[in-house]
Design a protein around this nucleic acid. Sequence first.
DNA 1: CTGTTAGCGCGTTCAA
DNA 2: TTGAACGCGCTAACAG
Lengths: 335, 335
Amino acid sequence: MTVTIYDVAREAGVSMATVSRVVNNNPNVKPQTRKKVYEAIERLGYRPNAVARGLASKKTTTVGVVIPDISNSIFAEVARGIEDIANMYHYNIILCNADKKKDKEIRVINTLLEKQVDGLLFMGGTVTDEHLQAFKTANVPVVLCATTDEKGTIPSVDIDHEAAAYDAVKTLINQGHTKIAMISGTLQDPANGYARFHGYKRALEESGISYDEDLVRIGNYRYESGVEAMKHFLDRSDKPTAVFSATDEMAIGTIHAIQDEGLKVPDDISVISVDNSRMASMVRPQLSAVAQPMYDIGAVSMRLLTKLMKKENVELSKVVLPHEVVARQSVGAKS
Amino acid sequence: MTVTIYDVAREAGVSMATVSRVVNNNPNVKPQTRKKVYEAIERLGYRPNAVARGLASKKTTTVGVVIPDISNSIFAEVARGIEDIANMYHYNIILCNADKKKDKEIRVINTLLEKQVDGLLFMGGTVTDEHLQAFKTANVPVVLCATTDEKGTIPSVDIDHEAAAYDAVKTLINQGHTKIAMISGTLQDPANGYARFHGYKRALEESGISYDEDLVRIGNYRYESGVEAMKHFLDRSDKPTAVFSATDEMAIGTIHAIQDEGLKVPDDISVISVDNSRMASMVRPQLSAVAQPMYDIGAVSMRLLTKLMKKENVELSKVVLPHEVVARQSVGAKS
DNA sequence: CTGTTAGCGCGTTCAA
DNA sequence: TTGAACGCGCTAACAG
């Protein structure tokens, strides 16, 4: 039924070793025999079996990617960056959603390892000791993507979330705002939550603005939670004059909540966020945001992984990509 | 270095066949030996090698997914549906972006087949004879996902794009509109382009509204192209009173172009589209749209594939999922 | 430049 | 209920 390397060898009148050589572009083959083999391959419609090859060579040219949720546009963007570079280096990716759930993450890491991936790209929630343990039993390189571990023992690529948040809030302060609310992700989330919250706090403190915990609401990253949080702030007698949202989506909810109240952005209230997804330009007013280079985070981490897999030694294994504040229309001076 | 089934056998004092049995949950093992084997596995930290298993059993429990672009939220949603169901049936997915480019599609189909995937899910542009040829040489089931082939020879799951467009335009007509513009995708695209355009045309014709080609612009599915197309319509002396957009994103661009001109949606111009992505509720006014159940398309196609892979016979191999118009705020009666 | 020979790690008969 | 032996399709020495 299925045609093997052996069939090709017979058809071409050579040994299977020779067929293997031409298939793998080994130069040590006489052009004439190479031609014969190619013809035999063509005639038989031979397709190399990558599984057998993987068993023999101990390389599968596939990498595992654990991602929180591919339907989240932020992560989808990262995934595209990963896949483009993987493709460039002739790797394929096995994609697993793990929803930032530790148990699910550990589980998929193990099945990925069973499948003998040549490397692992991990995007998730907190990196616990259990994760570290699982990574250690892997005999393949691992790189954290859009995440970091506290200990810094695993190579990673990410932005500096704390600084990104700091810069966002700072641009608000520079416009004269002092009553600045924050809509944060859960503080359990090290990057989107905790780090950004602390950037917010540091910016306030450095500017001598006292931190008011009533001005912070925890959202779930989604549009609706931005709407809801903002409605809460709007109920106060002394409304904030500016809002910093941990994500674009919540920021857009924020903008709409403000507008629904008959107020104007940025005239009455300014809004800024971190992400800069494509949606940021798809609202009116267009959203000012600190840009997180998601595609690049994916691309760079995959590139790093290829180096690790080739055992090249990399100078820097904890790379922090630059962020930048892109000013659009949702931030104005305090009136 | 790596611990194999053989090491476990020795450690447990049994044969490798027995270890294989307990690992694969074969009931023919005395509970006591089973226990011994489990302990040995634990002690040695044995992890089954799925590649070897795949070679021996000729099953890899992984399916290939070729997708146009994972960073497109529509497809990302499908992918999530696929992965959830795949996960449920213990399959993993290898994901390949092919950007609806025929050459790239054929190429990834072949590498997926080399990797011995147990099945293939294809999401792409037009299904050409070359595709059909590639599918035929695959010895594994293939299902088209959010696409169909003309000939209908390959199992598929999709919505009826023509009818969806028809329904969208019809709701405009029911509101009294007769001057209805369309922003379409390229007519080369069988689903998003051609079919939706024809649904538009049919709705007009059935209502005795003559088709005016000046009222149709081709966009590239993106926000900006919606803005641009609408600006064009706005330049006309007799502006359309309603617009049907082939995608949500272009529809949002349309709304903003209208608003930027000082006009109101839906008071001055109504807007409707096909997609109903999460963004539809993230604009003001919220976008009315015909809902395409992307997640379900992914889930159902993966479910269908599992049946095909298990050689269960399926009654219906060309499934058409229902669409539905969800009315929000962007459509109003003609003034 | 080419062929021979071992495995790679596991599933699966077939006997026992 | 268990074990021995073979083979899945290919790569990688090693020899020639």
